[in-house]
Amino acid sequence: MSKDSTKKIMLNGIWYDNPVFRQVIGICSSLAVTNLMLNSLIMGLSLIFTTAFSELTVSIIRKFTPKHIRMIVQVLIISIYVIIVDIFLKAYYPEMSKALGPYVGLIITNCILMGRCEGFAQNNPPVKAFIDGIASGLGYTMILLMVSFIRELFGFGTLFGVKVLGSWWTNWTIMVMPPSAFFILGTIVWWGRSKTEKSEKEVKEVKEVKEGRKALS
């Protein structure tokens, strides 16, 4: 596998094909943990771990899995990794495990996992699938951190629990409440889509020009 394609997969996962604002999947669990940046970071890391390893596993056994039961096999693989994450958090970060509550378990039903396993890992070699898992996870974590940055900064005046805004700052209660997450994510989706749409158009134009040249020559 060339370096070029690794870079392409990474870029696709993080930007051009970002799970949250391009494919609009995985939003379920992405908002509930965004009130504090630390929660979002842990959630993001757990998701990167689960996506990468379940894609790797799905890809390794893809040739031996019968087609009609592949969904249930994928779900099983995903839930095994989620259980590992859950037990790990319980053992080493009990407070974090409590704060995230059921949302760690809900990673199983996060559509990013099923989507990438079904759409990518099923037809690609293990190394590529692993990289794709990391990239999709990173794209998702990026959005989580953006939302939680705004929510924590305005809602509590802190970042990662450290006070950044002085005592003059009045906390915006709305930022702690659920509706703000929808507004912020909506705005990020808007921003992300208008940016990527443009770059997609440029790519298309370049392609057209190239094809045109080919046709001429």
């Binding site: 604002f21 609009v24 929808f182 507004f183 994510l185 909506g186 705005t187 989706v189 808007w190 921003w191 992300g192 889509r193 208008s194 940016k195 749409e197």
Partner: peptide
């Protein structure tokens, strides 16, 4: 960019 999911979220 707001069409579809964007406006739905708002």
């Amino acid at each position: 960019g707001l069409e579809g999911p964007g406006i739905t979220l708002i």
